[in-house]
């Protein structure tokens, strides 16, 4: 089985979010970038398929040279090779189109992406990629087993979960549950050394068009001070009469 894990390169969850150029660009100054958490769960599940079922695991990112350390980290965790599609990621559709080409050229059976990126929270690349390549698609995937070309997956639904059966080629939008938090791997020294020698190929983009443009950013209005109360009676009164929330 040939697996491709899509890696989005995002600001660390503790990053302060600021904008520049008249609030039209994300300010990357001082921001630490990481593998998107949803993709880290997917990558770890892919390592399981590699170790237990002999799958090959490639990782891909659509982005500029600045994303290479993130791809190297994925190699250090254990992916075999990395691909960087050399173009700025501008919108979900453009990224999905570029990824579709990588999937078709590489003949991948299983594509593991994340439910959403924690930066733009588009929640669209995996579904669009499935739609564009004609693969089956399971979103908010919290468990995945593959047997030959058949797959069984569990996905989170509102208020519970659902088990589905499907077949390869398959794209999933993954999240925590694919593996547990405690299964996530921190690259060790050997992994980091080996990652330096693993291939990271840079491919030129197909030049896909965009459908949407992020034209400006805004920060939420500053919050008023909290009202501290001493008794539960006061709290209930405020929630009922002032906030009208109960």
């Amino acid at each position: 089985m040939k697996i491709l894990v899509c890696i989005s390169h995002v600001p660390d969850t503790t990053s302060k979010i600021n904008f520049t150029e008249g609030d039209t660009k994300f300010d990357t100054n001082g921001v630490q970038f990481v593998i998107n958490p949803n993709d880290e769960f997917g990558l770890t599940r892919a390592m399981w398929f590699k170790e237990k079922q002999g799958a090959s695991v490639d990782v891909v990112n659509v982005g500029g040279p600045e994303t290479e350390p993130t791809l190297r980290k994925a190699l250090a965790i254990g992916a075999d090779t990395a691909i960087r599609v050399n173009t700025e990621a501008k919108d979900g559709f453009q990224v999905a189109k570029e990824l579709a080409k990588v999937v078709q050229d590489g003949g991948y059976d299983l594509v593991i992406a994340g439910r959403e990126s924690i930066d733009y929270n588009g929640g669209m690349v995996p579904g669009m990629l499935a739609g564009l390549t004609g693969a089956n698609f399971v979103n908010t995937c919290i468990s995945l087993e593959v047997d030959g070309t058949n797959a069984t997956a569990t996905r989170e639904i509102d208020g519970g979960k659902e088990t589905v059966t499907t077949s390869l080629p398959l794209v999933i939008g993954g999240q925590k549950g694919l593996v547990e938090e405690s299964d996530l791997r921190i690259p060790n020294m050997r992994g980091i050394m080996m990652a330096r020698k693993k291939p990271l190929s840079v491919v030129e983009p197909a030049g896909a068009a965009t459908e949407t443009t992020a034209v400006a950013f805004e920060k939420p209005a500053p919050k008023g001070a909290v009202k501290l109360v001493d008794t539960v009676d006061e709290l209930i009164d405020l929630l009922h009469n002032e906030a009208k929330a109960i």
């Binding site: 559709f93 929640g123 579904g127 499935a130 739609g131 564009l132 908010t140 996905r155």
Partner: peptide, 23 residues
């Protein structure tokens, strides 16, 4: 933006060649 609506929206976007804005 229910779980099911978020699941189908990108597939719908491909069907309709439509741009999609979530959230």
């Amino acid at each position: 933006q229910s779980a099911n609506a978020k699941y189908l929206a990108p597939l719908l976007a491909v069907e309709l060649e439509a741009g999609y804005a979530s959230n």
